[in-house]
Design a binder for these strands. Structure first.
Lengths: 299, 299
DNA sequence: CATTTTCATGCCCTGAAGGTATCAACCTAT
DNA sequence: ATAGGTTGATACCTTCAGGGCATGAAAATG
């Protein structure tokens, strides 16, 4: 059976064309080297060298075997190197879940940071809502999520990436937009509104805290923020959405500040399992410690 | 330093996810296998397995290393296999020299035999005259030649591949062609003739034996038979050439049998050095023992 | 709580592989 | 022609890598 030591021994002799010099290169003496080559030739049942008085020459089979051995040894060096790189997290894959809305704010800067600091880490993107992200984390389908609270899952850790205010999305030409300035919650009382459905509990509760919405003024409910905005654009009413949604540039929709909204009511976190064994994840995590600059995310 | 045995041990554990079963597969007991893996992880400075109560799981680095090891072991099996194939001559390269004229007769059948019986042997074709072939054999630039005698080089062996007669190449419409039948040597006495130059001694002597050519009737001399035929086609005279040249189908040239020519005056041999160490050559040589069928070579 | 499962550890022994000394064959040069 | 030098092969000794057996340790199972 071929061993890597035999391949190294053979290659040394093949390249030096001389047992003595090859032995020197291998930091050993000539006799055991001769024996190794003999043994190799015996197991292969192939004569690799033509012994001549001035040294040795390769046979045709020897030349082919030399090329194979070069490749073999190269691979034998690459395998450990690659394992170390992956273990260190410098090379690898991070599967990242993100909400459609976060795609408009933190996703770009997050990917930019990873590309900058860990260029050999591939990022696989999976769009899903926050609840699905937590489920995917649990099942191991993703490594990181860009999601909104609450995170009540076991072993979940998180890092605040972005805070922003809520604004009112109105159809172009709506009197709120023409007027300029901001809108107060009580002014929405008689507006037809697009509201968040039960699945989007985070935003539903945020809006409920700031605006007194009555059932009779709700034109539609939707889970995805982008759906709400689309419905606003179609003229079905107004909606309260995070400020970064304006990056979407949806035609026929304008954003008006909401007077009562604190500048940091809406949060977006990076979330991950502290128990994850993906080295690339742990290599990337320090890059997500600092919040994304709102100015950057704003354009 | 990684060894192939370690790679095999690792791969067995990685695939079985269980030290006991892996040890069984490797025909050894579990304790030394555990030690081998520990040693491997230590030299790699990488944890490859997560030991759990129901067996083991691979880390990310372990999965990458498993893929690398699969390739590595595959190559470690391929290298000896390839060396054996090349040593046996079933795979390899034969560099073959041939004269332009032999390209019209034996070359095709010879290549067909090799393709049929040794499909993995590549044939590299080198067109050159017989004298160059012997020189190239000596210098090791080719392995076999398709050449004409004499072969006075040391260690040269040869095998007769083809015998054929000499014919007279005449321009279309020449009275020899219109008359039908054969031509006698004495009838060429007053024809303008294209003759072989000093370098083509073999044909020069053959023709001199059959036809009494005078210096004053020689319009041109040339080394390559194809050149002679081209000059005949251009109307510069007639020439005595081997019968297989008619395969060339040179327009404006017709072949007329030469009455005095025995059917086997012209010989073509395969020649090679008995000292060659090219296994593919020795694998191919038996295919050149039998002469090429003249009927086959005739079409 | 006893039993089973699974990987790790301690100890022993064999044999693969390296070292030294030397041989055999061949080439070179006086 | 013969002595000396070069190069690979052989003989013999020694070491230690790696395998086997017995057993430990930890966790799951019933």
């Amino acid at each position: 059976m071929l061993t890597l030591d035999q391949a190294r021994a053979f290659l040394a002799v093949a390249e030096e064309r001389h047992f003595g010099r090859a032995a020197e290169r291998l930091h050993m003496t000539q006799p055991p080297l001769s024996r190794q080559i003999q043994k190799l030739e015996k197991t292969l049942e192939v004569t690799l060298f033509l012994r001549e008085s001035r040294g040795v020459r390769l046979t045709a089979a020897g030349e082919a075997f030399r090329d194979e051995c070069r490749q073999l040894l190269e691979m034998a060096e690459r395998a450990p190197r690659r394992a170390r790189l992956i273990a260190s997290g410098q090379v690898g894959l991070v599967r990242l879940g993100y909400t459609a809305a976060s795609g408009l704010s933190v996703l770009g800067p997050v990917l930019a940071r990873i590309k900058e600091a860990a260029p050999e880490v591939a990022v696989e993107l999976h769009e899903m809502v926050s609840a699905q992200q937590l489920e995917s984390l649990r099942s191991g389908a993703i490594d990181i999520g860009l999601a909104r609270p609450p995170f009540q899952l076991e072993d979940v850790e998180s890092s605040l990436l972005l805070t922003e205010s809520l604004v009112v999305a109105v159809p172009s030409g709506h009197r709120f937009a023409q007027r300029g300035g901001s809108v107060s919650g009580w002014e929405l009382r008689h507006e037809s509104m697009i509201m968040y459905s039960e699945q989007a509990r985070y935003f539903r509760d945020l809006v409920a805290d700031l605006v007194d919405v009555h059932a009779d003024q709700v034109a539609h409910t939707a889970t995805q923020i982008l759906t709400l905005v689309a419905l606003v654009g179609a003229g079905h009413g107004v909606a309260v959405v995070p400020r970064s949604i304006q990056h979407l540039g949806m035609p026929g929709v304008e954003m008006v500040p909401l007077h009562e909204s604190p500048p940091d009511v809406v949060q977006l976190h990076a979330v991950w399992l502290s128990t994850s064994t993906n080295p690339a994840l742990h290599h990337v995590l320090p890059l997500l410690e600092d919040p994304v600059d709102a100015a950057f995310s704003m354009h």
